[in-house]
Design a protein around this nucleic acid. Sequence first.
DNA 1: TAAGATTGAGAGCTCAATCTTG
DNA 2: CAAGATTGAGCTCTCAATCTTA
Lengths: 155, 155
Amino acid sequence: MGEPSVAEEPDEIRLAAWRALLNAHAAAVGAIERDLHAAGALPLPWYDVLVALAEAGGRLRMHELAERVVLSRSGLTRLVDRVEAAGLVRREPSPGDRRGTVAVLTEAGAAAQVAAWPAYARGIAVHFARHLSAVEAEAVAGALGKVAAGAADDA
Amino acid sequence: MGEPSVAEEPDEIRLAAWRALLNAHAAAVGAIERDLHAAGALPLPWYDVLVALAEAGGRLRMHELAERVVLSRSGLTRLVDRVEAAGLVRREPSPGDRRGTVAVLTEAGAAAQVAAWPAYARGIAVHFARHLSAVEAEAVAGALGKVAAGAADDA
DNA sequence: TAAGATTGAGAGCTCAATCTTG
DNA sequence: CAAGATTGAGCTCTCAATCTTA
């Protein structure tokens, strides 16, 4: 016996949930990205950066942005490079800690975020939300929220 | 009015479900891939190919494999290139349709798939299944199953 | 010695074009 | 002309190493 261990192998229903997660994510994200690309809209990762900054009041240190955007630290550096080159974000030295950098949303960036939302919202509605009842949506949000929170722990 | 149209904008609870899906997927898949990489195991996409073939009885045409593996058609060509170079899969001309190619699981491939499962199962258990009750797992499987099926339709 | 961020190198993915066969 | 599969080019991601400051 020993530790409060985890079952080595997931049971059938949890395995079905795992497979459904992989399939639904691939199908929905893929379809939305194709739609956005075809419409010449901002790529999803760019939008993700802009929203995270907007929700944080317009400025965030790089490593905090990395957490919210769900990308690796090094991946974020380059993603912000591109978004910055497009003028939607600006980098500033972090006051008080000379190691740090803060990403700041520019006016153009805030405008781009607002302008991009409708197309993105439509994609979510068509490729995801449409298939869920309110009860199902609530169940998914609750259950997967715990998964995300749990994974953040062991990090 | 007109078409049986879809709401332009998802409501709050469905939007929360969407965000939870993105976060849970990124967290769980990322953690599992890091574990597998650290253990020197097969990458997830390779495993995905081997399982799909095993479940189909060992052989599948390229475009059928592409559907199950949840990767783009062109992405699959190269993925199979790599797995084939490792000797886990072999390509054969498709009998009856000279345009086609079938991917065939080799003995080494079948063995690799069996050997890889425990590590992968443990990752699913630790980073995903552990956080879900049986009821929650069933709800997630049902709801996201519909999303995946729906997206497959409009494709 | 650790934390914040960037960089270099290599691998993988996506789109669009191409080639072959139906 | 459509379907099956591959290829070429460009872009993005990841890991590991590096540099600077705490």
